[in-house]
């Protein structure tokens, strides 16, 4: 397990849910974990929403100082520097969507490269309208790499249709993920599946996701 795990991907690919669950999983394995939400794109749904639950599990949460406040400012907290420099914690970084979100990563890249103990994961959902096929997924992946200046090291297949997800939804995405993996020469690290479906999906390395409860 690498010390720093970064989740990037197309806008709305499910990075936040995957990042929150990854932080919880690392904690369950007995590691010291910190999750940084550096999504400067979306002020509505963010990993900091799970703050209470994560902190309850003993996970340190680093969030944008002004998110959800009266200041609409995409400033990044200085603690994120600490996270990429401190080598005693397992760091999970939830990065904003698309190339625009990935620009925020640029300033940390020199430290991440120097330590060279990271996974940069491309989260993809083939049910999203602008990444319905391998070719468009490759385009998004390349755009993000160009913006972040950090090459990807792996793929997370997070194909889902929200509430309407079935085992078949996920299974029918497996060949696409495989083709993507071959084209960009990156391994599929895991397939993320919501918890109640995880056992029914026939795929290698299924990572069960606990999702936030719906109110409406």
């Amino acid at each position: 397990m690498k010390r720093v795990t970064l989740f990037c991907g197309h806008y709305g690919s499910g990075k936040t849910n995957v990042a929150v669950n990854m932080a919880a999983e690392l904690k369950r394995q007995g590691k010291t974990v910190a999750l940084a939400d550096i999504d400067i794109v979306n002020p509505y749904f963010r990993s900091a929403d799970s703050r209470q639950e994560l902190e309850g599990q003993g996970i340190e949460v680093i969030a944008l100082p002004f998110a959800g406040s009266n200041v609409d400012l995409p400033a990044l907290p200085q603690e994120v520097y600490g996270l990429v420099q401190r080598r005693d914690v397992y760091a999970v970084l939830d990065v904003g969507g698309d190339d625009r979100g990935a620009y925020a990563l640029g300033r940390y890249v020199p430290y991440i490269r120097e330590e060279n103990n990271y996974e940069m994961l491309f989260v993809v959902n083939f049910c999203r309208p602008l990444t319905r096929d391998v070719q468009s997924a490759v385009e998004v992946l390349r755009e993000i790499e160009a913006a972040s200046q950090l090459p990807f090291t792996g793929i997370v297949n997070n194909t889902n249709l929200g509430d309407a997800t079935t085992a078949e939804t996920v299974e029918s995405s497996l060949p696409l993920a495989q083709t993507l993996s071959e084209q960009v020469k990156l391994p599929i690290c895991f397939t993320a599946v919501k918890r109640d479906l995880a056992e029914r999906v026939r795929a290698e390395n299924v990572f069960p996701l606990k999702l936030q409860p719906k109110l409406f």
Binding site: G12, N125, C127, R128, P129, S172
Partner: peptide
Amino acid sequence: MGNKVLMKG
């Protein structure tokens, strides 16, 4: 992959 897509409003 079916006809449905997952979209933001």
